[in-house]
Nucleic acid binder design. Structure first.
Length: 359
DNA sequence: AAGTCGTGGCT
DNA sequence: TAGCCAAGACT
């Protein structure tokens, strides 16, 4: 689709612009790179592929600030991919609790076990792309950053920077091909990993979604979006659908200092995570409200939680009867150690609500 | 190929 | 506040 990018139709011009952009950006990166714990230590030519892979998976749709403590905890507990491969999936899921998008954690374990079996990470983008949890972005990022391959790394930062740099006005997601072609054109043969990280640093700190600090930008002189006066309007995005609102109930059942926890099915919402029993609420509909066992219940309050595609108002019902008898799969968990259960945030909020009402 | 899948921070 | 957004993958 190169012919759809007007400036690319001029080979000499485009080659000059591309070389200028990559040189300016790499020079800026050498001066201004963020110091992140998964990047190579001073003196090391390249970072540890395990740390690169782990960080890239954690950073999918997730901010650096949110990832930092989880990354530190993971590499402390599991310093190598072999160590992670040997860990029980349940422990990894619990360690991931609160970070969101839990299919990432399931795929993380799957991937670690495959890689350990293979004797190490594959070193090419094409081979990395076959691993579970590595899509186009992550495969390219690991290949470039950990192994020095010239791969075209396109994430939301790159899309934004490129759309502004070349004033690409077609709306996303239709503009993806055009943006990718432009990103390809400015990716250098050498230091593609640094280039990718530089684009992401630029997108995070200078050319961000709600702000464009053009006076600080190393590419401002080359930026068509700035020249045309409206960089903040780019990239253009399709309007989003409205979020539905749902209601549901979670049930707090306690016996002798322990609370009844269930494990959610391996796929779907909060898949594979420990949880409080609930009444079947979902993105598609409200919960039925029926309690999982007979006896008296009292209201424990309401938790409001906003997921990506719906809002939930979750009532918490507390079992008020004597000696609850439970049928079905689950486990009694010491209330005092509820923090270690690895509850996703929604249920952690519910637990906090119940426990706070006792003080 | 559009929908599904978390969470916290920012404005 | 309510909406937007973040180093996307998977189906």
């Amino acid at each position: 689709m190169v012919d759809r990018v007007p400036w690319l139709a001029l080979p000499c011009h485009s080659a000059r612009v591309s070389a200028t952009v990559s040189a300016l950006l790499l020079d800026w990166y050498d001066r201004s790179a963020r110091d992140l714990q998964w990047r190579a230590r001073p003196g090391a030519p390249r970072p540890d592929p395990y740390r690169v892979w782990l960080s890239e998976v954690m950073l999918q749709q997730t901010t650096v600030a949110a990832v930092a403590p989880y990354f530190a905890g993971f590499v402390e507990t599991w310093p190598t991919v072999e160590a992670l491969a040997a860990a029980p999936e349940e422990e990894v899921m619990a360690a991931w609790a609160g970070l969101g998008y839990y299919s990432r954690a399931r795929n993380l374990v799957k991937c670690a076990r495959q890689v350990a079996e293979m004797g190490g990470f594959p070193r090419t983008e094409a081979e990395l792309r076959k691993l579970p949890g590595l899509g186009d972005y992550t495969a390219a990022a690991v290949a470039a950053i950990a192994f020095g391959e010239r791969a075209v790394v396109v994430d939301a930062n790159v899309e934004r920077v490129v759309a502004r740099l070349f004033a690409i006005r077609d709306p996303l997601p239709a503009a993806r091909k055009e943006i990718r072609a432009a990103a390809d054109a400015i990716t250098p043969d050498e230091r593609a990993g640094d280039f990718a990280q530089a684009m992401m640093d630029l997108g995070a700190t200078i050319c961000s979604a709600r702000d464009a600090k053009c006076l600080l930008c190393p590419l401002s002189g080359e930026c068509r979006g700035r020249a045309e006066g409206d960089p903040l309007t780019l990239p253009v995005k399709a309007p989003k659908k409205a979020k539905p609102s749902r209601t549901g109930t979670a049930f707090w059942i306690e016996r002798e200092g322990e609370v009844w926890l269930v494990k959610r099915p391996g796929t779907g919402m909060l898949g594979g995570m420990r949880a409080l029993p609930d009444d079947g609420w979902s993105a598609r509909g409200d919960g039925h409200g029926d309690a999982p066992l007979a006896g008296a219940w009292k209201a424990g309050g309401v938790v409001r939680h906003s997921f990506t595609h719906f809002d939930l108002e979750l009532g918490v019902a507390v079992h008020a009867g004597e000696k609850p008898v439970i049928e079905g799969e689950g486990e009694w968990w010491a209330v005092e150690e509820i923090e270690a259960a690895g509850l996703p945030t929604l249920f952690a909020k519910a637990a906090r609500l119940v426990l706070a009402s006792r003080d």
